[in-house]
Nucleic acid binder design. Structure first.
Lengths: 349, 349
DNA sequence: CATTCGCCTGGGAGCGCTCCCAAATTTTTT
DNA sequence: AAAAAATTTGGGAGCGCTCCCAGGCGAATG
């Protein structure tokens, strides 16, 4: 089944059918309807390879997550991100290709791009100074970054306001009266982790507090690392009264360490997380955290990229760089100790 | 950069370059080398869309995992499976497309297949009586199943011997002297879970033991479900001395339930898992389990599919159905209590 | 030495679309 | 009513490959 055959059945030409499929407005309403009816009737799908070859675009966009497969497929963060991207692609008739990094990242993407298989790229937060990014830009491949990249304003980005979010969380702890506030950071070779650390520091300094260096522990986003970091924090003298963890997983790890030490959250030590992942609401006690609309970010990034792809490069393409920064919002639950300071129910270790 | 240009640089014709790229033996060695050199020099990649259009195949195979995204991206099982498939594809110059099920599965795949975007499909274990499978077969799309599908021998499969594996695990517990052996099954709408249950039952019956129905608890593969199931088992009178869990996650959940009840593994209750995921070796106590070479299974399934695709359909295609069943192997660690019955070190709850 | 056979090589004919221009049709204007 | 303008339609020319057939060349054969 081809365009030509549909055209024959509809009593018009190949070109008209093509116009209908591509939503070209220059088709008489009546003709359009007739053609659509035949297309539906025959359950016709245009051949993607032919479209790609003739139209010089594949309608496939790649999502690159510079992390090992085992991380991508274990952290629900990525599941949500991918879901958001996939939804946007679906809505606009694009295909999302997860670029699975097996060999050298450079090679693989380079390959796909050169083979004209990819129209554009979504790039999840790369490591700081990732050599891959300049490599991609040189190719002038349409690119949207999820997360910001310091020192470059020529790449479109979608991001949450990490600094503000971390600030909000820390300020909330300050407001509750805690002064010995520690933090467990994410992996510090990621901009997001640095930003959250900065937000934490800013909030404390604004309150005139300079945290001792032992109050700043580096994690790697995982629950296990949160647990280890908290174990270190418990050794500090004096130990902190509250902890801001840069991710919910780490916050949960920290809570487990606290509970394993025979202490209680939030009565003995308050904990605040970041990301507001689904688990945050169901752990015990429910975790106070900063909401991070990951799925929405993925959706926006993919939409932005598709928009770019479909806008003819009339204006200088360097000019239409956009930066979307979504506001962070604090979700107050029990783990920070607000109303709960006297009514906590014991946890079931 | 096109075939034609490479040909010009190499002083030969488009056809010859095409032959070189496609490893056609009918090219003089000297010419072949010269052409390869130019290709490397120019960093040339043939246009995929053109190849797909002219060659009537896309070199893209789809991997369908009939599970919600959140499951796929959370269970390391799938990460390993995907990795295996991706490696095989990479090796043979194919692309793996994860088919993300957003809307109706039927629709999405139907779509991709009709648009000639997919040459073949890898299908991870579908639910029993999944209406999707017959749908796919009607299309005569090359298909390889990971896991078996009862009552159909016309689909190629790659699988581990689940029945034998579960038997081995149960027999091992019997050999250690346990007689009150319970099981935590996987989700029973999956063939794999049924097979593992069957293996467990067979082993017990061979030993002349008929387990009471309360010794058989259904889980859903998750750690949480293992924990819940174990809590039920602990209520049984008399409680079991040993538990065979149909997955490592559930086994770990069970161990946590046992430890939370103030009992010890394996001294009070022995636990055996299934899958031998990386965590199995690192939990405390290390988990005795059945090795499941998931990555290898993915690799084999993808290789088999590609083989099918590249074999011209000379012989009746219905005839070349293959079933690979990999043997299961027991990995004995500490959690079953073997040597450990008197030397267990306490766990750090 | 002419003939046959094998091995290489070149080029034509598409694959099923999109893009573009020109022709046909309709609508608006004078 | 004819002319001009706007709208709608048709078909040619590719996109960059693969497939196939025909032709060139040298070695083996009679």
């Amino acid at each position: 089944m081809t365009l030509e055959e549909i055209a024959r059945l509809a009593g018009c030409s190949r070109s008209t059918v093509s116009r209908v499929i591509n939503h070209d407005p220059n088709v008489r309403a009546e003709t359009r309807e007739r053609v659509w009816r035949i297309i539906k009737e025959q359950d016709f799908q245009p051949n993607l390879a032919a479209r790609a070859l003739a139209g010089r675009r594949s309608r496939v966009i790649g999502l690159v997550i510079p992390q090992p497969l085992s991380t991508i497929f274990t952290d629900p963060f990525f599941s949500m991100l991918i879901h958001g991207c996939a939804l946007a692609c679906d809505e606009r008739g694009y295909y999302l290709m997860l670029s699975l990094v097996l060999r050298q990242a450079n090679d693989t993407y380079h390959w796909l791009i050169r083979a004209r298989h990819l129209d554009g790229l979504l790039l999840a937060p790369p490591l700081i100074n990732d050599p891959f990014v300049p490599h991609l830009l040189d190719k002038r491949l349409p690119l949207v970054m999820i997360g910001r990249i310091p020192g470059r304003t020529d790449i479109s980005t979608v991001n949450i306001d990490n600094i503000k979010g971390a600030s909000l969380a820390t300020q909330h702890l300050l407001k509750l009266g805690y002064t010995r506030i520690a933090t467990i950071t994410g992996a510090l070779n990621l901009v997001g982790a640095l930003d959250r650390l900065e937000g934490y520091l800013c909030a404390l300094r604004e309150a005139g507090i300079e945290p001792p260096s032992e109050y700043i522990q580096e994690g790697d986003w995982s629950e296990a690392s949160g647990r280890r970091a908290m174990e270190c924090l418990l050794q500090a003298t004096p130990p902190p009264e509250a902890v801001f963890a840069a991710s919910d997983s780490m916050a949960i790890g920290a809570m487990k360490a606290i509970q394993a030490a025979g202490l209680m959250v939030p009565n003995d030590i308050a904990v605040v997380g970041f990301d507001d992942m689904p688990v945050a609401a169901t752990v015990d006690p429910p975790l106070t955290t900063v909401h991070h609309p990951i799925e929405r970010i993925g959706f926006l990034a993919a939409s932005m990229l598709i928009e770019k792809l479909e806008t003819p490069p009339t204006q200088a393409s360097w000019a239409n760089v956009q930066h979307i920064v979504l506001p962070a919002r604090l979700v107050i639950r029990m783990s920070c100790g607000q109303a709960l300071r006297c009514s906590a129910h014991p946890t079931d270790v």
